[in-house]
């Protein structure tokens, strides 16, 4: 039995999309945590400007992450 060519193309697409999306999620969520941790550290050190900046950065990256989650729900509903 030979695997049809269409399966190979789907397979390659699945592999690169999975790598891109999986690594993307890992990076984005880690950056949210990193920025949040830095904001917390800055707040503890009394540096309010840096705390606000890191907090805003964490919120911005979280919004991008949330957009990915919404895309995931959309995929779930349309497959």
């Amino acid at each position: 039995m030979i695997v049809p060519a269409v399966t190979w193309s789907l397979l390659w697409q699945t592999i690169w999309v999975s790598f891109a999306a999986g690594i993307g999620v890992a990076v984005l969520f880690s950056l949210v945590i990193l920025a949040s941790a830095r904001a917390s550290d800055a707040r503890r050190a009394g540096n309010d400007v840096a705390a606000a900046g890191f907090g805003a950065l964490a919120a911005l990256i979280f919004l991008i992450f949330a957009a990915g989650v919404i895309l995931g729900v959309q995929v779930m509903l349309t497959k």
């Binding site: 789907l10 697409q13 699945t14 999309v17 999975s18 999986g22 995931g72």
Partner: peptide
């Protein structure tokens, strides 16, 4: 979800 989106 990425695999589902790719049709696999």
């Amino acid at each position: 979800l990425a695999a589902s989106h790719a049709g696999f």
